[in-house]
Design a protein around this nucleic acid. Structure first.
Length: 115
DNA sequence: GCAGTGACTAGTA
DNA sequence: ATACTAGCCACTG
């Protein structure tokens, strides 16, 4: 593969994000078995074609807002797509991570009850 | 192999 | 609360 990081693994994690939920780059990286490589996650999504079927719009930065891309128009696209899924933005145009942050695992949330 | 770049994050002022 | 800095590491030329 082109790089050491398995892009497929990143895409798998992003695809597993349930609708109406969002995850941070750092969270996706950790779930992709590459903790700390949040930047690489964004890079992988950048190489992702629009028709890949990957819900890249569900990935946002740790602040809960949409990261700036080369083309600012994508900001609006991502925001619209999330709203279509039921994600609500606050007056600041940010997503309340405490409410929409995806809890990995579906593990039944054994202990993620809290935050 | 070096330099520049970037859809990040955490820390500091 | 915002603004700036440094660290991070993989991809491209």
């Amino acid at each position: 593969m082109s790089g050491r990081v398995s892009y497929a693994r990143i895409y798998e994690v992003v695809k597993s994000i349930p609708e109406g939920r969002v995850a941070t780059y750092g969270q996706v990286a950790a779930l992709a078995d590459i903790p700390g490589h949040a930047r690489q996650v964004g890079y992988a999504l950048n190489a992702l074609p629009d028709d890949s079927g990957i819900p890249w719009q569900r990935v946002i930065n740790a602040r809960g807002e949409i990261s700036r891309r080369m083309d600012p128009q994508y900001e609006w696209i991502q925001k619209t797509l999330l709203e279509e899924e039921g994600v609500e933005f606050d007056a600041r145009g940010r997503v309340p991570l405490s409410e929409y942050r995806w809890q990995s695992g579906g593990d039944g949330g054994a202990d993620l009850g809290d935050e």
